[in-house]
Design a binder for these strands. Structure first.
Lengths: 233, 233
DNA sequence: CGGCGTGTTGAAGACTTTCAACGTATGTGG
DNA sequence: CCACATACGTTGAAAGTCTTCAACACGCCG
């Protein structure tokens, strides 16, 4: 695996981030392997530079909820937490950088630029998480899948110019665990979307065919109409 | 409404937070009224000092997903975002403090202590959001409700010493929108839990009867058992 | 070629949703 | 003080969706 640039750490572009490289050790994790477990001490902060990592929590019924799919430029955990709040495993081979947590935090706090980057990262992660809630709370399987594909496309588009082919490096089970569906339901829903000519299923992803009028209708509206009551301040 | 102390802003205890008070204007919002809409410019950051605020996004089907229930000591939006990512309305009467965003952000960035408080706040919100995902993705209505009650109890316990009576200031519809259920389903589930002697429904809340063996079984396990693969680093 | 991980399809069952009607509570006006 | 209106909550029955468990198909690699 190529030694990737890590200049977009925190999804930022700053020069200060580049300096962090020096304190970091590069590590490559093979497909499917664990990076860390929920509950472990988080003395090391992992920054992802290549590949995709699933972050998940176990569910009471033996399953798991995938709480995030990390992409290059993202940290696998907030540097402020002392114990990992979720487990992390590699989807495909991934390249990571290990930062000693204390050192990283001190470094970030000493630089207004890095602090801004981290705060921005935290905000984006929070928004991502809340968008995911909309996906999960939104009843029908078809809408969930459509919302997932849309969100995933938008995230991919931020990394490289958009193409109709949308890569899905993760397994069906991952998407199902992400959406709170059984994998059979997910498979059937994807098949249904293909029958409707909204997507085309290809080896390691899907092709988004343009005619997603129906898709748009299922997507969240840009702005809410008034709740009850008027503003007074 | 009493003028509440705001010293636990960001859920912290620091003295530096107290200084923020001076730049803030106090405002009381009546029950049910809007505080801000998604999409609006976020020139003002609101800190909640008394009451409960629902943060929500509209769903394509006309409903809404409540992405968070804000409690005293919390900000209604990250100070780093320029446009509100969700709408906020008061549950019951609430007391807020208005901070000019630029000023607040500058103040926070100039103090390592305040920066730490904000980072900690962001981390907690992210964890809360991800716990909510577990709730939403966790299939059965009964488990969702049980998880919600548990999480709500834990949050309340952090504000004042725990009591068996768990206040639920929000309406049924709010809880339903939080859990991604219809309110009829929520009502039936609550009734079922009462029939099982797990809760007792009282005017503005529930009483958690001790015998929640069944409840414990539905709650997330403390630590996950091994995923496939072993650690190598 | 065989085995295993992964993905698909089928049919019965369980659960939630839907739409409707009925209770209950609170507050205002007669 | 009672009556009524409105908001909130509960209950019922039918319909729809997802889940469950099972069997089958596919592709990769030893």
């Amino acid at each position: 695996m190529a030694h990737a640039s890590f200049s977009y750490l925190f999804c930022g572009e700053g020069n200060a981030a580049r300096e962090l490289h020096r304190t970091a050790a590069r590590v490559v994790v093979p497909a499917g392997k664990i990076v860390f477990f929920e509950g472990e001490r988080a003395d090391i902060v992992f920054g992802l530079s290549e590949g995709t990592v699933r972050l998940f929590k176990p569910l009471p019924n033996g399953g798991r909820q995938i709480v995030a799919l990390a992409l290059p430029g993202e940290l696998l955990e907030m540097p402020t937490v002392e114990q990992h709040r979720h487990s992390a495993t590699a989807i495909g081979e991934v390249e990571l950088y290990r930062f000693p947590r204390d050192q990283l935090l001190a470094h970030i706090l000493s630089s207004a630029q890095l602090t801004n980057l981290l705060l921005g990262f935290a905000s984006r992660q929070l928004n991502l998480a809340r968008d995911q809630m909309m996906m999960l709370g939104n009843g029908s399987a078809e809408k969930r899948v459509l919302l997932f594909l849309t969100m995933w496309r938008d995230r991919m588009a931020a990394l490289k110019p958009f193409q109709q082919y949308l890569p899905l490096p993760m397994m069906r089970q991952d998407i199902a665990d992400f959406l709170g569906l059984r994998l059979e339901t997910l498979g059937r829903t994807l098949a249904k979307l293909e029958a409707k000519n909204i997507i085309r299923i290809v080896p390691k992803g899907v092709v988004l065919t343009g005619r997603d009028r129906a898709a748009q209708a299922a997507l969240p509206v840009p702005l809410p109409q008034g709740s009850r009551g008027i503003r007074a301040y």
